[in-house]
């Protein structure tokens, strides 16, 4: 990502055009729905996601079980709803950690410059040179199976891209006139960084954050599919698709519905991220 050397144009409050407002409502809606799924799945799910009911195993979708039942007779819809906490929750956690670490790291590199900057960014280059999925698998596998090791593995891989992005932005903002003004007025360095530099990175950070939640969800469920993630009986989405694999001929709905939910969630974040980017650049 190359950042223009020209002084950045001053931020103007984007006009509340109709399209822009639509995006805001969309984002708010997404956050609300996901927050509900993560915080109060018990109120939304029609059944107990862990309750075994062997007699009714592999029931095709119908009025009582909209997504059908799995190999232990558990309601797939309820499991998907309860699984949001593990799947989306983990994705948000991974990207939050990555964005926080990357922001601090990148702004330090840009702020101090010189040898420290070169050293820090060279380290970032090393991390970005890993084939990330293989590396995530290796880290998750080395640490032993479980959701925690997958979260650690993916966070470890994700922060360098934020560090690079933030460093580029901070560097260009530091050349800006308002920074010179603040310096002239005697603002302390920490103050400048906290109040006059970092806030200007929020726009791009938000776009990136939104897109990356989708990406993290794909990576996380992919690792879970390989058995490197949530352990049974947790209803994590990737894990559910993995479990459905051996019954794919018997019960298509078992493989299809959890996958549809992953797909729809990722699609939502990708489209929302693109819309936010358009809004912030227009």
């Amino acid at each position: 990502m190359s950042v223009a050397k020209l002084p950045a144009a001053p931020e103007t409050a984007s006009p509340t055009r109709k399209a822009g407002r639509g995006v805001v409502w969309w984002a708010v809606g997404t956050v609300l729905v996901l927050a509900a799924l993560v915080l109060i799945p018990g109120l939304l799910a029609p059944a107990d996601p862990y309750k075994l009911d062997i007699i009714n195993r592999f029931t095709p979708p119908h009025g009582g079980n909209l997504f059908g039942t799995d190999d232990s007779g558990r309601d797939i819809l309820s499991r998907v709803i309860h699984g949001a906490r593990y799947s989306i929750g983990s994705a948000v956690l991974i990207i939050t950690v990555a964005a926080l670490v990357g922001t601090v790291y990148g702004s330090l590199a840009a702020w101090y410059g010189g040898i420290l900057d070169r050293l820090l960014m060279r380290t970032v280059d090393v991390f970005l040179a890993f084939p990330y999925l293989v590396f995530a698998m290796a880290v998750a596998a080395s640490m032993g199976r479980g959701l925690t090791s997958t979260i650690v593995a993916l966070s470890l891989l994700w922060w360098p891209s934020y560090a690079r992005m933030i460093r580029g932005q901070v560097k260009s903002i530091l050349n800006d006139y308002h920074i010179r003004a603040a310096t002239t007025l005697g603002a302390r360095r920490g103050q400048i960084l906290r109040w006059h530099v970092i806030p200007h990175t929020y726009n791009q950070l938000l776009v990136r954050f939104t897109l990356d939640i989708g990406n993290a969800l794909v990576a996380l469920t992919g690792l879970a599919f390989l058995g490197l993630g949530a352990t049974p009986p947790l209803p994590e989405w990737g894990r559910m698709v993995a479990d459905s694999k051996q019954f794919a001929l018997l019960a298509w709905w078992y493989a299809v519905f959890p996958g549809v939910v992953i797909f729809a969630t990722v699609l939502n974040f990708v489209l929302l991220g693109e819309a936010l980017r358009k809004r912030s650049t227009s």
């Binding site: 989708g214 469920t221 698709v241 794919a248």
Partner: peptide, 10 residues
Amino acid sequence: AVPVFWVGLL
């Protein structure tokens, strides 16, 4: 946006 493992399974 589509997860690879799901495409393969479908």
